[in-house]
Simulated scan of single mutants.
Amino acid sequence: MTTAQEFRLDSPGVKDGAALWRIARDSKTLDLNSSYSYLLWCRDFSGTSVVARDEQGEPVGFITAYVRPERPHTLLVWQVAVDAAHRGRGLAATLLDGLARRVVGTHAVTSLETTITPGNTASERLFTSFAKRHGAHVEREVLFSAEEFPDGSAHDPEVLYRISPLTTLTTKESL
């Protein structure tokens, strides 16, 4: 069995955009963005995102994130996805720790934000355990109510998780 430590963490490049789109699509839980958006993300936000590569160098998991323009000490994690064949091995936590460590070192980030829909137990556990590992606090509040989504589809509310301070992270194991 492959462990999370056996994957290589890397910044994504444009050539990874299609694989990230496929992993997101196949997750069946993420809101799927256009394939174009994943290509742009890998071009414009590679420094604040991370991809896990298998032995052949192929992406098997990723986190897309960005530093908030209005809050330059805050990293917003947009999506976390791991290929079905590699789930249950701690890879998402490894990705999150590696990304946070790198971004804290390069962007002076002191807090992390993400949104989670109620009932997404895997994401709730991922982010609350991240906070616990790093001695940070978690604040929660509804960021977008279900009624605010304009496309007419049933969408659960998005709950904002604000995790801070990220003062225990170091750059010694940066990507």
Rank of each mutant, 00 (worst) to 15 (best):
M1Q: 11
T2A: 14
T2W: 12
L9F: 13
D10T: 09
S11R: 15
S11I: 09
V14A: 14
D16T: 03
G17H: 08
G17R: 04
A19Y: 01
W21R: 04
R22E: 15
I23G: 11
I23H: 09
A24K: 02
D26M: 02
T29I: 14
L30E: 08
D31R: 12
L32N: 06
N33K: 13
S34E: 09
S34I: 00
S37L: 10
S37C: 03
L39I: 04
L40I: 00
C42P: 01
D44P: 00
D44T: 00
F45V: 04
F45Y: 15
F45N: 07
F45K: 10
S46R: 12
T48A: 02
V50A: 15
A52K: 10
R53L: 15
D54T: 02
D54H: 06
E55R: 13
E55K: 09
G57C: 02
G61A: 15
G61R: 07
I63R: 01
I63K: 07
T64C: 08
V67W: 06
V67M: 05
P69G: 06
P69D: 10
E70D: 13
R71D: 08
P72T: 13
P72H: 10
V80M: 05
H86E: 05
G90H: 12
G90S: 14
L91K: 12
A93N: 11
A93T: 12
A93V: 00
L95N: 08
A100K: 10
A100H: 09
R101G: 12
V103F: 05
V104D: 01
G105I: 08
H107K: 14
A108L: 04
A108N: 14
S111D: 15
T114W: 02
T115W: 08
I116K: 08
P118M: 01
P118I: 04
A122H: 05
A122P: 15
S123A: 14
E124K: 06
E124S: 10
E124N: 07
F127S: 11
F127H: 13
F127P: 07
T128D: 02
F130I: 01
A131Q: 13
R133G: 09
R133E: 10
R133V: 04
H134I: 04
A136L: 07
H137W: 01
V138D: 04
V138K: 09
E139P: 00
E139R: 12
E139H: 09
E141W: 01
V142R: 10
V142D: 11
E147W: 00
E147L: 09
E148H: 04
E148F: 06
F149P: 06
F149G: 05
P150T: 03
D151P: 14
G152V: 06
E158I: 04
L160E: 03
Y161A: 03
Y161F: 15
I163W: 04
S164W: 06
L166T: 04
T167G: 12
L169T: 02
T170F: 04
T170Q: 10
T171G: 13
E173K: 12
